Simulated assay, not measured.
Amino acid sequence: MATQTFRFVLIFIVVGVQVGLAVLGMGGLAFFFSHPPLEALAIVGCVLLVASMFSEGNLNPGEREDRANRWVLVAFGSILLLISYLPPYTDRMEFWTIDGEITRWIGVTLFAIGGALRLWPVFVLGRRFSGLVAIQPNHKLVTSGIYSVVRNPSYLGLLITTLGWVLAFRSSVGVLITACLIPPLLARIHAEEAMLRSQFGSEFDSYCAHTSRLIPGLY
């Protein structure tokens, strides 16, 4: 129960900081909600937040953890702060923006798709889904469903939802910041796959032979 409460508090803090910075960047609630696509963005965000409350994702180090990879969490956190504030700010200042409400709606659509893809694996893995690179008790290699196509669907979802967020604010600067997610994301993926290979050996190698790491058919 204590772990679950901590997870809820952490989620609300992260979301609260992100929303607060976005509103600050847009110059206040009135300016933020003056655009229908941003109203839709807020609604989608609330739906994803509520859905995440029913998942069992955690920060459990499990039976074995690669602690050397924890720096990635700091990198993700730093990029999250930038991505929360700068795109709304550049939107308000009309600095290097991608013109058109269509861009905003494309962003909202990608945000929704990416958010769903981000959460889907969390529900599939349940307690085995950790924000840390770790092997959990009774850890099993999941190779069915979305995992039969791509080995890291949640990270693909993270990239898509982040790109959607910045496009909702028409931000070219945000697109560049989104690209900054790729190096730490790849570092996390390589660390996780090394951990899984050490745990499952040839079973994991066989799984890798017919699946993509991040983008189906490309990588």
Rank of each mutant, 00 (worst) to 15 (best):
S55D: 08
I146V: 15
E56Y: 06
M53F: 12
M26G: 11
V149Q: 10
P153M: 02
L214Y: 06
P216L: 01
R128M: 15
W71D: 03
L110G: 00
C46T: 15
V72N: 01
V17L: 12
S206K: 11
V108S: 01
D99I: 05
G57Q: 11
F129P: 05
T3K: 10
G62I: 06
M1V: 10
G16E: 11
N69C: 11
A191K: 05
F76A: 06
A40G: 05
G115S: 02
L159S: 08
W71V: 08
G164N: 00
A116G: 13
A112G: 03
G164V: 00
R151Y: 04
S212V: 12
P183H: 06
P183G: 05
V72G: 03
L196F: 07
P216F: 08
R70E: 11
T211V: 13
T211Y: 14
T97F: 07
G115M: 02
V19E: 00
M1T: 08
T90V: 14
L81P: 06
I189G: 04
F169K: 01
N152E: 07
A30H: 13
Y155R: 02
R104P: 00
L141D: 13
L73E: 08
V19N: 03
F8P: 05
T5S: 12
Q199A: 14
Q18G: 14
G174N: 01
L29M: 11
I146T: 04
S154Y: 09
D66Y: 14
T178C: 12
L21S: 11
V150F: 02
C180M: 06
G201E: 13
S84W: 03
F169W: 01
P37G: 04
A194P: 02
P36E: 10
G62W: 10
T97K: 05
F95K: 14
I11D: 07
S34I: 07
R92W: 14
Q136K: 04
I11R: 14
E63G: 08
G25W: 12
H190S: 11
F76E: 05
E192D: 12
F31T: 15
L59N: 11
Y85N: 08
A209Y: 01
V50G: 00
R118I: 00
Y155E: 03
V133E: 03
W120Y: 04
S52K: 01
P87G: 10
T162D: 05
I83R: 10
L41Y: 02
L167A: 07
S206N: 09
T103W: 06
I102G: 09
M1P: 04
F8T: 03
V133F: 06
S148P: 05
G201P: 03
N152P: 02
F32K: 04
P184S: 08
G217T: 09
A134R: 05
I182E: 01
P184F: 03
T5W: 13
P184K: 09
G100W: 00
V50I: 08
N138D: 15
W120A: 02
N69W: 04
V47L: 10
C46A: 13
S171D: 13
S52A: 05
E56G: 07
K140A: 14
G114D: 00
S55C: 04
F76G: 09
I182T: 09
E94P: 02
L82M: 09
L159H: 12
S144N: 12
G25L: 10
